[in-house]
Design a protein around this nucleic acid. Structure first.
Lengths: 135, 135
DNA sequence: CACTAACCTATTGACTAAATAGGATAGAAA
DNA sequence: TTTCTATCCTATTTAGTCAATAGGTTAGTG
């Protein structure tokens, strides 16, 4: 299950992309359009700013803006940033300790195939693909 | 993320299928082969028995056995039984309340496509496909 | 009657999701 | 330089789930 963090992050990025402006967009506008609390979005956007996906600017006329073109954000990277890993099972997550049963495990090959499929799906899709109409 | 419940359930079913016997197989044997605690597996198998995927038999000579042929168990049904829904996002889960934003939501079509892909993957795969060698 | 093995109920400890609250800081405009 | 703005930062809360463990009960076999 993808949590609200990942889902909201995607919606905010698409929202920003669709504004089609290079100005900073204040969060309260985004939050109102999306129907999400400003306070909660702050937490989510913090991650995106810290990782350079967004630029934040304080004070009057401040807000957030994209740092790249919409087609240069993959859905996969945004989800991994906000959700952690996309791996379906713990033993395939990055940093997981070697499973001693991996040679004999009947289900591991299936999980690997599934993970590859998921990865291809989300990393093959960009914010531009989610926009109403490409600007 | 698929939890241990679903993963262990699959491994037990494959284990039972690979025994290739029509006798009841006691849980302590399965648990030892799979390296999982008997007590924890009891909880998981309970669900499978209650839903008719397994038959349990008490007393000496008792244990568990499959109620169908391996190819008649889809991975999808087992995961849904043990994990709840396979839906990726809350708004697409069965029984979810109508999302008031569904018409304007930019991400919903992607989640729908993804869910379909996941569904096809897991319901197109059976326990037989996970077995070492078809008996 | 003893043994076996499934069945049942309850509890634990750790962790995470989804927020909310309140303040601190930086920047623009007056 | 003061005021307003809007991001940034830290902490807390509430509820729920995961992954087990513990201990007892019931049904069936020899």
């Amino acid at each position: 299950m993808i949590s609200t963090r990942g889902r909201y992050a995607l919606r905010v990025l698409v929202d920003l992309a669709e504004q089609g402006t290079d100005d900073f967009v204040p969060l309260n506008e985004i939050a109102e359009r999306q129907g999400i609390s400003v306070k909660y979005l702050e937490i989510i956007l913090k991650t995106l700013v810290q990782n350079g996906l967004l630029k934040g600017h304080r004070g009057k006329g401040g807000g957030y803006k994209l740092t790249r073109k919409p087609e240069d954000y993959t859905v996969g990277e945004i989800l991994e940033l906000t959700e952690g890993t996309l791996s379906t099972v713990a033993c395939l997550a990055p940093g997981a300790e070697e499973c001693p049963r991996k040679e004999q495990c009947r289900t591991l090959p299936m999980w690997k195939r599934f993970d590859d499929m998921v990865h291809d799906f989300f990393f093959g899709m960009t914010i531009r693909d989610l926009m109403e109409k490409p600007i």
